[in-house]
């Protein structure tokens, strides 16, 4: 029950930030992916199964708020969530630089997988990709590593 409440709050916070950032700046909303950060956070703290399930939920929410193929973000986030949890169970990914690289690689993987699936389904979709999306892994990884650093400082996150 506690896990369910924590995860629900986490997803709502991600959705809240996604909405607010979209209202503040359209460009900024393309650079930061709060849903992915939520997935990675829960994958690290709760394990790969939670990562995969939260990835499914977050991905489908993101899909339902965009015009595209419903399920692509869901699939990529599910895989990223599982992978994040799997790696975090075996390697300490919390030190700042390692954490940054960990998030960066995961989000690059997610972006690449989404793009591949869109190309695979229709090259027409790939034409819609805005260059800003390509900077999303870097910006989200910087934000994510800073957030995780603070969470560690306040002992919310530990390995």
């Amino acid at each position: 029950m506690r896990n369910f409440v924590e995860i629900s709050i986490g997803i709502i916070i991600a959705f809240f930030l996604y909405t607010i950032i979209g209202k503040i700046s359209f460009s900024l909303s393309q650079l930061l992916n709060f849903f992915t950060l939520a997935v990675i956070y829960f994958a690290i703290t709760k394990g790969e199964l939670y990562g995969a399930c939260i990835g499914t939920v977050c991905g489908l929410i993101q899909d339902s708020f965009s015009l595209g193929v419903f399920g692509i973000s869901g699939l990529s986030k599910t895989l990223i969530g599982f992978l994040a949890g799997f790696i975090a169970q075996r390697i300490n990914v919390l030190p700042l630089v390692r954490n940054f690289l960990f998030i960066l690689v995961l989000i690059i993987g997610e972006t690449a997988l989404s793009l591949f699936l869109y190309y695979f389904i229709s090259a027409e979709y790939a034409r819609e990709i805005t260059p800003l999306i390509l900077f999303q892994p870097l910006c989200t990884a910087i934000l994510g590593s800073i957030v995780f650093l603070f969470l560690r400082k306040f002992r919310v996150l530990s390995f």
Binding site: Y18, T19, G22, K23, F26, S27, S29, Q30, Q62, F65, S66, L67, G68, S73, E128, I129, T130, I133
Partner: peptide
């Protein structure tokens, strides 16, 4: 109140 998460030039809410 919202924009498209995948491509901002596609849709708005």
């Amino acid at each position: 109140i919202g924009i498209d998460a995948r491509n901002i030039y596609k849709s708005i809410i």
